[in-house]
């Protein structure tokens, strides 16, 4: 996706009675940012390309794989299918925001302990989705975890380790 600012088009829309979202204020992992994204930029592209937070991955760019999962105001979403400019005022949490003071999030630790990954490409999305899955109360059994984690695809097939890690972290939470 191109990232050249569409300045001309912004002023065209600004002539309408509706207000134009030109400045985007978002907080990412607790840090406030003021940005002027191209209207075409997805939240994923702003995280990766503008803010250099490359932990969030781009797999399919079509909403199908879950690699780009982040939390927006505490809820898991696929950041590739949403325009950054539509999130003024939002609080975003990415994989970079989970560890606190050099200490890994319990689910990150559980992924390591249970071999919840092989190549690691899907892992940030799995962990963000897993954090939400536990917070939602959808991690009560391996069956429930499999259903509620089905939006995250793992090409390496590390599913048994992923389910074990989430089960473990949910029990400790």
């Amino acid at each position: 996706m191109a990232v050249t600012p569409a300045v001309g088009t912004i002023s065209a829309a600004a002539q309408d009675s509706s207000t134009m979202t030109d400045t985007l204020r978002i907080s990412v992992n607790g840090t406030p940012h003021e940005l002027t994204p191209d209207p075409r930029q997805s939240l994923l592209d702003v995280l990766r390309e503008t803010l250099d937070l490359t932990g969030t991955k781009k797999g399919c760019n079509q909403g199908a794989c879950g690699a780009c999962t982040v939390l927006v105001d505490g809820k898991r979403v696929v950041s590739c299918l949403t325009l950054a400019a539509m999130h003024d005022g939002a609080e975003i949490t990415t994989i970079e925001g989970l560890a606190k003071g050099g200490e890994l999030h319990p689910l990150q630790t559980a992924f390591i302990e249970h071999d919840g990954l092989q190549c690691g490409f899907c892992t940030p999305g799995q962990i963000m989705s897993g954090v939400a899955c536990i917070a939602e109360g959808h991690a009560g059994s391996p069956e429930e975890i499999r259903f509620w984690m089905s939006g995250n695809i793992c090409r390496c097939g590390a599913y048994p380790g992923i389910v074990a890690a989430i089960t473990d972290a949910a029990e400790r939470a």
């Binding site: 996706m1 191109a2 569409a6 088009t9 912004i10 065209a12 829309a13 309408d16 509706s18 207000t19 134009m20 979202t21 209207p39 075409r40 325009l83 400019a85 539509m86």
Partner: peptide, 9 residues
Amino acid sequence: MLLFTLQKA
């Protein structure tokens, strides 16, 4: 993606 404008209602 082609160019478009975005406004908020």
